[in-house]
Structures are given as structure tokens and as C-alpha cells.
Design a protein around this nucleic acid. Sequence first.
DNA 1: GTCAGTGCAAACCCTTTGCAGAAAG
DNA 2: CTTTCTGCAAAGGGTTTGCACTGAC
Lengths: 139, 139
Amino acid sequence: MNLYPDQLRQRVIARLAQNSINPTRQRVEIGMCLFDCDKHITADQLLELVNQGRHEVSKATVYNTLGLFASKGLLREVVVDPGKQIFDTNTAPHHHVYNTDTGELKDIESADLVVSGLPVLDESIEITGVDIVVRVKNA
Amino acid sequence: MNLYPDQLRQRVIARLAQNSINPTRQRVEIGMCLFDCDKHITADQLLELVNQGRHEVSKATVYNTLGLFASKGLLREVVVDPGKQIFDTNTAPHHHVYNTDTGELKDIESADLVVSGLPVLDESIEITGVDIVVRVKNA
DNA sequence: GTCAGTGCAAACCCTTTGCAGAAAG
DNA sequence: CTTTCTGCAAAGGGTTTGCACTGAC
């Protein structure tokens, strides 16, 4: 994006407003990091990034805010590792390649990957998503 | 299977031996439960099942044994929920339907589901598995 | 006796919860 | 003043680790 901090801040505030999220100081700080960093991030990495030495936001707030953003569709949770929540700023439909040796996580465009033969489900059941994870390791 | 306990025990011991696993008392107890229970199980559920009131095996040992069995290919770990390891006694290639409302996990035969367009990977990288999770909720 | 393998209590770490305080009405 | 919202310390729960113990040689 390469915005000046104030421009970025205004964009974040606008984006939160669009999703009916009160733009509190902590949420704006977190939003500024999310719109200006790696696509895939854990709560711990984000905490580090937000605080950068000083103490801006607590760990609990980072967790709660990530959960809030995800529930509003600003983020998507990627489940590739038990015991670690990873959030993805790319909310478009897509899949992942996960390197279990390095922890590296890469996107695969959804359009590139076609799945056929999905099961027919009961009417009382609704599909919320189809997640594909290609697990790889260093040869 | 419907075996008498002693027959089951012998089968478990044989299966462990095939995979170079020492058949200790704890491992055999755990193996007997795994070959005689639901396909999908967490460490906690297994602990409950193994002990059935009395104290046969500790929690740590259940975790370590599940990890050991999985590393030897007797079990497969299913990653559908962060913060919970689920193990699957079905080690054949297949996929899953996960109901996020109920926690229910069902198999989809691998043959029924076809994926095309997998990315071309570097030679230094090796695919260890392709996991597909269809996430559903009650409508 | 020595040494590799094993089981488990205790430690660890990630996440959630409950509540004090702030903000809004 | 009352009510709703928010941030975070502390609690919780799942998993791993370090070490005492066992069994084999």
C-alpha cells in the first residue's frame, strides 16, 4: 500500500466502520498491522508486531480482536496446525500449501484447483467452506 | 471385530511388532481400545476409554502413544480444529466432513473426490498428503 | 553395573473467560 | 445514573518435556 501512517489509519478506521466495528485505539493499531504485513499471521506474531517493544495492546486483546475480525469476515482462519491459530488477510476463496518442516504457508488460487464429487448432504446441513491443504516437506 | 479379549490382545501385540513398537502394557491397552472403537478419537476420549474408572494409563502416556502410533502409520492425525488433536484409525487416503456446530466428523471416500490443478512444486519439496475438509453447519 | 527405552508428574504454552473500568445514552 | 461495550489479568485446558524408573545386557 505504501501509505503515510495517517492515511493508513484512516483507511483502517473506514474499513472497521464498514463492518460495524467500533474503532477503538487497540483495534485500529491491530488493523494497521494487519493491512501492512504478511498474509498469514498468528496471534503471537501479531502481538509482537503491534507492540514493537513498547506495550500497546495485551495478548488477550489481540486474540479477541482477531476473533472479532474473523467473525466479521475481515480475516479468515486457516486450520493447518493443531494448537496454533493462523489468520489470513486474504479472504477470497483459496487454498494452501503447508510445509510441515518449515511452517511455511503459501496460497493456491482457488480457480487453479478443482474439486469434483462433493458428497450430497442432508437438507438440514449447509456447507460453510471447503478447505484444501496440500502438506509438503523438504525432500 | 468381535474378538474375545485375549484374541484382540494378541492381534494388537502382533500389529505393534509389525511396526517395531515394543508392546508394553500401556501400549497394548491403548491399542486394544483403538482397534475396538470409533474411528475418530481425541486423547481425552481415549484416556477415558482406556481407564474406564480405574487408573491404567496416564494422560501423558496416552498423548505420547498416540503420537508414536501416528508416526508409525498406525493412525493418522486429522486437523480440523485448532487446539484439538483428532486421530483417525482409518489410515487409507480419504477426506472429511466436519460439522462445526456439533463437532461431528465424517469420512468421504478418497475415490469419490477428485482434485485437479495441484500446483507444480520445486524438486526440493515433496507432497506428504492432500487434506480436504468440507466444513458444514446446521442450516 | 551400565545403558537404552518408557511412563508420567509437572511444566508449558496457547486461548478463553470474568470482571473492572470506560464510553455511551 | 444505568446500560452496554471493551481490554486485560488471571484462569483454563490441551500438549510436551524432563527425569525417575524399569528392563535388557
